[in-house]
Amino acid sequence: MSSSTPGSDSLVTIFGGSGFLGRHVVRALAPDLARLRIAVRRPDLAGHLQPLGRVGQIHAVQANLRNAESVEAAVRDADVVINLVGVLFEHGKQSFEAVHVEGAANVARAAAAQGAQLIHVSAIGADPESSALYARTKGQAEAAVLAAVPDAIILRPSVIFGPDDAFFNKFAAMARIAPALPLIGGGRTKFQPVYGGDVAEAVHKAVAGAVAPGVYELGGPDVATFKELMRLVLDITQRKRLLLPVPFWAAKMMGSVLQILPTPPLTPDQVELLKTDNVVSEAAIRDNRTLPGLGIEPHTMAAVVPSYLWRFRKSGQFTGRRSLA
Rank of each mutant, 00 (worst) to 15 (best):
V257Y: 07
I82P: 00
T276M: 08
A98Q: 11
E102Y: 09
P193C: 10
A173S: 13
V211Y: 01
F226Y: 15
S95H: 03
P268W: 04
F248R: 06
A135G: 01
G185V: 09
K314I: 06
Q114D: 07
T319F: 13
V12P: 00
V121K: 03
V99L: 09
R41M: 07
P51F: 12
L229R: 05
A148D: 06
T225S: 15
H204W: 12
N83K: 01
G17V: 05
R176Y: 04
I184F: 07
E97N: 09
A110S: 12
I153S: 06
P245M: 09
G115D: 12
L118C: 05
L52M: 15
A200M: 12
P213C: 07
P264V: 07
V101H: 01
M174C: 02
S256I: 02
S8I: 13
T290F: 08
D127S: 12
G16S: 10
G92R: 10
H120V: 00
A104M: 05
R322S: 15
R76N: 05
A224D: 04
V75S: 01
V71N: 04
F20P: 00
D77E: 12
A200N: 04
Q270M: 14
A173P: 00
E297F: 10
A173G: 15
V61K: 06
A104Y: 01
P264T: 04
E102T: 11
P221V: 08
V305F: 10
V159N: 02
P264D: 09
A180D: 01
D269F: 02
G295C: 11
V25T: 12
G186N: 09
K190S: 01
F20I: 11
R109P: 00
M301N: 03
D235R: 14
R41D: 10
K170E: 08
H59W: 06
A60C: 12
V71L: 10
G196P: 03
R322V: 08
S323I: 13
R188P: 02
P163Y: 10
F15E: 01
V207H: 07
A141G: 10
A141M: 03
V25W: 02
T13C: 04
A112W: 06
A78Y: 09
A73E: 14
A111H: 03
G186L: 10
A143N: 08
I177L: 11
P157L: 06
Q140M: 12
D44H: 15
S8H: 15
R322L: 15
S323T: 12
R188I: 13
R66S: 13
V149F: 05
A166G: 15
Q114K: 04
V280D: 13
L155I: 08
G47P: 07
A28T: 03
R286D: 09
A173E: 07
V25D: 00
Q114A: 14
H48M: 11
